[in-house]
């Protein structure tokens, strides 16, 4: 189960828009490709804002949800 945004390095064009919108500064550009800096830093969000996924022009970042029914 993914707890951090999933990044497709092949799709990332290094534009950095996701880095700019990330409210918890969890994303960083390394060698022109975005990476999640520290898992715990991304966990500062109480819930996924998914802004990184929203602004990505190439679809390189995904924030998938699993759908469950409350017991």
């Amino acid at each position: 189960m993914a707890k951090i945004p999933e990044i497709d390095r092949n799709k990332c064009n290094g534009c950095g828009l996701c880095v700019g919108v990330c409210s918890c500064q969890a994303l960083v550009l390394v060698d022109n490709t975005v990476e999640v800096r520290e898992k715990r830093e991304c966990h500062q969000c109480t819930r996924w804002c998914t802004m990184c996924e929203m602004v990505c022009p190439t679809g390189a970042i995904q924030c998938p949800f699993e759908v469950v029914t409350e017991e």
Binding site: M1, A2, T50, E53, M54, G59, Q62, C63, P64, F65, E66, V67, V68, T69
Partner: peptide, 28 residues
């Protein structure tokens, strides 16, 4: 939602948008 076998599917908002035939912003 998880099926009877407990299998959990994962969806992004983009995928939901594509399935609903709408813009991603509408899913949010």
């Amino acid at each position: 939602a998880e099926d009877t076998n407990g299998q959990r599917h994962r969806l992004t908002q983009q995928e939901m948008a594509a399935m609903a035939g709408t813009a991603r912003e509408m899913i949010g």
